[in-house]
Design a protein around this nucleic acid. Sequence first.
DNA 1: CACGGAGCCTGCCCGC
DNA 2: TGCGGGCAGGCTCCGT
Length: 277
Amino acid sequence: MPELPEVEVTRLGVAPHLEGRPVRAVVLRREGLRWPFPAELPQLLAGRTVLSTGRRGKYLLIEFEHGTLIVHLGMSGHLRVLPPDIPADKHDHFDLVVEGPQGREVLRMTDPRRFGAVLWHPNEDGELDEHMLLRGLGVEPLGPAFTGALLYRQTRTRSAAVKQVLMAGDIVVGVGNIYCSESLFRAGINPKTAANRISPARYDRLAQCIREVLAEAIVQGGSTLRDFISVNGQSGYFQQSYFVYDRAGVPCRICGAPVRQIKQGQRSTFYCVNCQK
DNA sequence: CACGGAGCCTGCCCGC
DNA sequence: TGCGGGCAGGCTCCGT
C-alpha cells in the first residue's frame, strides 16, 4: 500500500494521537516481520513520552528522548489508531498503547505480507541518518536538495533505465512503482530511457513532475484523513485516478493511444508510447 | 561501483 | 469447487 505519500499521510494522521503522549504499553504479537522486533521494546518505551513524529523516505519515525522508533510498512502494511480493547486480528502484529486526554488509544500495525519492520535506534548509537537502514538513502523528493541538477549529476554513471534508477532510492527516496510511472508520464519521458542519456533540461522537468505528483497525492490523501482513523479504515487509499498506472490497454488520457504495460526489474511499468519519448 | 535476478510473505484473481 | 499460476504500492542480498 504505501509509497511516500501514503506514509506521509499516515504520519499526519497518527501524529496528533502520539505527540506529547506517554506510552503505556507495547504489544508484540510475533517475533518480528522482515527483521526481529527488538524484544526489549516494552521496557524501553513504557512511561516514555512521544516527542514528535517524522519521516525519512518511506520510514516513519516516532521520536523519544532516548531514541527513535523506526516503522516501515513494507508492501502491505498500514497503521490505525483504535480505541482500547479492540481484539487483534490475524495480521495485527504490533501495538503502541498511549495515554490520551480521553483515555487510552492504540496505534496498531497490520501487515499481511510481513515485509514491514519495526526497529529501535537508541540515541547513544549516534545519528539516526547513520542507522543501517537509513544510511545511503537519497535525498527527500520534497526537500530543497532535490533538483534536476542533482538527478543529472548523480546519473552520469547509471546506464540502467531511468525508471529503475529512480526506484533504487539511492539518489532520491520515496518514488515507488506507482508514482514513478506517473511522474515519468507527466514529464514525457519513456521509462526505458537510460538514465545517463537524459538531458539536464529534461531532468529539471522530471524533478518538478516528481515533486508535483507526490505533493498532489499527499494533498489528496490528506483530504481523506477523516476516514483514516477508524476501526474499518482502509488507510492511505486514494480514490484518485491515475494517468497510466494500472491502465494497461486503456486510452491515454492525453492522446488516446492505449497505455502500454511492460516489466522492468520484475515490476510493472505503465507508459504511453506516444506521450513519452 | 553498477546491474539484474532471487527472495521474503500472504491474499486475491484468473483460467482450467 | 479446487488447484495452480501470476500478480501486488518495497527492499535487501548476492553473483557478475
